[in-house]
Write a protein that binds this DNA or RNA. Structure first.
Length: 578
DNA sequence: GCCGTTTTCGGCCCGACTGTTTTCAGTCG
């Protein structure tokens, strides 16, 4: 996408300009880059429709940067960027990925040792050449080697789904201490980001020593990075790090606000504070020397003239502007979810776990569950054919009538029958329309031949959406976190056709998928395409993936009205095509 | 280079930590 390309160039220009010690320009370019990254409309379209004035309406884009955008649109490059690249022919992004290296150090390393990338850097450090440079020393050299080691084994981010359950356990255990007055996760975990670098936990206590002693002796600790008077860092057996900070009780609110971030969100809050003649930091909101808010986040936001903002949307992508006008969306909550429609019973593999899934769903408090097994094209998953689907339908009817008896004849809980059919390369579905029409709903998804061109893949999915029997598209972009990128698709077109045909897009709650992502969700909401949050459970325990889907939906600003399995079952069934 | 219910010029977010330094620049979150 062209927005991302230009954003990347501006980001790089910001780093180069820092190396040139330019004043204020770097921040300007960085701001423009960030703004383009989160921009939903295509920048080329904006220019075509509204010209340079349209570009200048983008926050952080003024005359100068608008002209550079136009230059890129017309010639495919930006002269100023070329000039900087020539002056600093280095892989700046790569070098800065090493912890402790920023633009200035990268510049010095290039100018004095001709270091252009990590390979050069490692060689120089190993040869002991870095320690002799001005403003560098032995310690810095060792830190660089350490940083390279970490960089190499990375993909060092972890899935929220891998980490959050453990965080809940740690919090529950620390809560048992009577010295712990308040406790919360902070940082990207609290914002429910898809992936997490490290975990931040905050505690309010008057006896930090005791709390920290307990913290570093938690089960599963394999390394203690540091243990201070009010903070400590540990590495857990999953190879991820947890930082703890212990604060005086009174400071908990401002510290929680500060350490939750995001950085971009906090920067804007601090600017708002400055404008009001105040100062915001982790120690509180101040007017001069006087602390006017500190104990709770609500208090801080209120004194800044804002509604309290849910952590999931604290990304400075428009939430602050809405909070100023008290117009924040009412984000969907887990308790709004009335049922789960993407659950596999592995019926074709001879398992009969439908009633177990139903029991689990009843325990969760759902009003219905939808069984949607794979279909015949996916042999390896024991996909069902037409005949098996009809047999399964009969069994589900039987279980449903038994359930009704259990509830004294009342239909308090219902099992629906769907399927997760395959969208073939040509866009057709691997189950006959006649049988599809007999099911309560039909999910269709791409499970093969994922390396098509953008137009091929888009047309494939569009054709499936135009099938009147297809209600829902599962994991619409196909990405698997840390493993595989999304398919090449024209998501705008998918959205337009979804809107036109009334097709529902899935928010797949599996922590490895989380597909749609937050940006997709915001786009869908804006266009008015409805979504459904499904666990994609392959065993009954995985029905508990649902919260991750809800977090993702919240990160995409989705409300109850946008998500059909937050509606009463009757409305849901009325909405789908049949 | 951007931006404006204090400004079209003069501002531009905050604090801790680290390593290298005798007072601070660079990096990070």
């Amino acid at each position: 996408m062209i927005n991302q390309e230009i954003a990347r160039i501006f980001q790089e220009m910001a780093e180069f300009l820092l190396m040139e010690e330019a004043a204020f320009k770097p921040q300007a370019y960085e701001k423009a880059a960030l703004s383009l990254e989160t921009l939903r409309e295509n920048i080329g379209e904006i220019y075509k429709k509204e010209g340079i004035e349209g570009l200048k309406n983008i926050p952080g884009v003024g005359q100068g940067i608008a002209e550079k955008i136009i230059e890129y649109l017309k010639t495919g490059k930006i002269k100023e960027h070329q000039r900087l690249k020539k002056k600093f022919p280095i892989k700046i992004e790569e070098l800065m990925a090493v912890e402790g290296i920023g633009p200035k150090m990268a510049r010095d390393l290039y100018e004095q040792l001709k270091i252009k990338d990590i390979k050069d850097l490692e060689k120089a450090a190993q040869a002991g050449k870095i320690r002799g440079l001005p403003r560098f020393g032995l310690k810095t050299e060792q830190n660089i080697l350490q940083g390279i080691k970490f960089f190499k084994k990375s993909g060092s981010r972890f899935l929220l789904g891998e980490i959050l359950p453990r965080v809940y356990e740690i919090i529950a255990e620390l809560k048992n201490l009577k010295e712990v007055k308040q406790i919360s996760e902070a940082g990207s975990v609290r914002r429910r980001q898809e992936t997490i670098g490290d975990v931040d936990i905050l505690i309010a206590s008057s006896d930090p020593e005791k709390v920290i002693d307990h913290f570093v002796s938690l089960s599963g600790v394999i390394k203690i990075w540091n243990k201070g008077r009010t903070k400590a860092s540990i590495r857990l057996s999953g190879e991820y790090d947890v930082d703890l900070r212990v604060l005086p009780e009174k400071q908990f609110g401002s510290a929680l606000q500060y350490f939750t971030g995001s950085k971009e969100h906090n920067i804007v809050l601090r600017k708002i504070a400055v404008k009001k003649g105040l100062k915001l930091s982790e120690y509180g909101l101040f007017r001069g020397e006087k602390r006017i808010a500190v104990e709770s986040e609500e208090e801080i936001y209120e004194k800044l003239g804002l509604e309290w903002i849910s952590p999931e949307i604290r990304e400075n992508t428009g939430e602050i502007e809405l909070a100023l006008k008290t117009k924040l969306p009412e984000l969907i909550e887990l308790k709004d979810i009335k049922g789960d429609c993407h659950c596999h019973s592995h019926w074709g593999a001879g398992k009969r776990i439908i009633s177990e899934l139903a029991e689990t769903a009843i325990k969760i408090g759902y009003e219905y569950i939808g069984i949607s097994d794979h279909t015949k094209f996916l042999r390896i998953e024991h996909g069902l054919d037409e005949k098996q689907l009809i047999q399964q339908k009969k069994e589900i009817e039987k279980i449903n009538s038994r359930l009704r008896q259990g509830f004294g004849g009342q239909a308090k809980f219902k099992i629906l029958q769907g399927c997760e059919a395959n969208i073939m390369a040509d866009g057709s579905i691997d189950i006959s329309d006649k049988v599809l029409a007999k099911l309560d709903y039909v999910i269709a998804g791409v499970h093969s031949q994922m390396k098509m061109t953008e137009s091929e893949m888009t047309e494939r999915i569009v054709k499936a959406m135009r099938n009147p029997n297809v209600d829902i598209i599962s994991h619409p972009t196909g990405r698997i976190l840390k493993q595989r990128d999304e398919y090449k698709i024209d998501f705008d077109r998918i959205l337009r056709v979804a809107k036109e045909t009334g097709t529902i897009l899935e928010i797949n709650a599996n922590p490895y998928r989380l597909d749609l992502n937050d940006k997709n969700i915001r786009q869908a909401k804006k266009i008015g395409v409805k979504m459904i949050i499904n666990s994609d459970a392959h065993q009954k325990e995985q029905l508990n993936f649902m919260p991750y889907g809800v977090f993702q939906a919240r990160r995409g600003w989705a409300e109850k009205k946008d998500v059909i399995n937050a509606w009463p079952l009757k409305e849901f069934l009325n909405f789908i095509k049949r």
